[in-house]
């Protein structure tokens, strides 16, 4: 077996308004080898087949996929907002590429800044984000952003933005301003 640098936890969120938010977010499985990642990936639904309101999150073991976790509190996310029609053409490729960036430690020494990644399945447009631990670490955030954008194969004119969780949390409409863009 080929060990990964970290042990990762796959989480699943299903929006059930009758239950507290945190109860809707559950860890599905943990793995720390390349082989076990693929066994998991093959076993679960593709992101594009999930119902609206659901999320997958992949986070390093020990970090919860929420702003409140102390490893996320000062951090932020590189956010990719997809158009509705991209669910059927690009979402699964972009999410898998995101997973491979994380598992392969693609951000060099800044991979330790990465906390995890989230895909939100939403009627108005799906989102994919890479969460990092320190929004003020401009060098790390920018390196991750440049590598991530290149790996996703986005054109130069496509702009992705980085938002601090503290700014997102302060906005009820989730339109936090971009702290950085690539």
């Amino acid at each position: 077996q080929h060990p990964l640098h970290y042990r990762w936890v796959l989480w699943f969120f299903k929006n059930d308004r009758s239950r507290p938010w945190q109860e809707n977010l559950q860890p599905v499985t943990r793995f720390n080898t390349v082989e076990d990642f693929w066994a998991t990936y093959r076993h679960i639904k593709l992101a594009s087949k999930l119902s609206s309101g659901c999320d997958y999150a992949l986070f390093k073991d020990g970090i919860q996929p929420m702003w409140e976790d102390y490893r996320n509190k000062r951090g932020g996310r590189w956010l990719l907002s997809l158009a509705k029609q991209q669910r059927h053409t690009e979402l699964d490729r972009l999410w898998l590429e995101t997973l491979l960036c994380l598992l392969g430690e693609s951000f060099e020494e800044f991979s330790q800044e990465v906390c995890g990644a989230v895909v939100n399945i939403r009627t108005k447009g799906d989102k994919i984000a890479v969460w990092t631990s320190e929004a003020e670490n401009q060098a790390g955030v920018m390196h991750i952003g440049h590598v991530y954008k290149e790996r996703l194969g986005l054109s130069a004119k496509t702009i992705i933005g980085y938002q601090a969780h503290a700014d997102t949390a302060a906005k009820s409409n989730s339109l936090a301003k971009n702290k950085f863009v690539v």
Binding site: H2, H5, V34, E97, L103, G104, S111
Partner: peptide, 20 residues
Amino acid sequence: GKKQYDREFLLDFQYMPPCI
């Protein structure tokens, strides 16, 4: 050392049967 894998390496394992 750091376990760093490029995407092609990771993708090579996608359809391998699990080890027993």
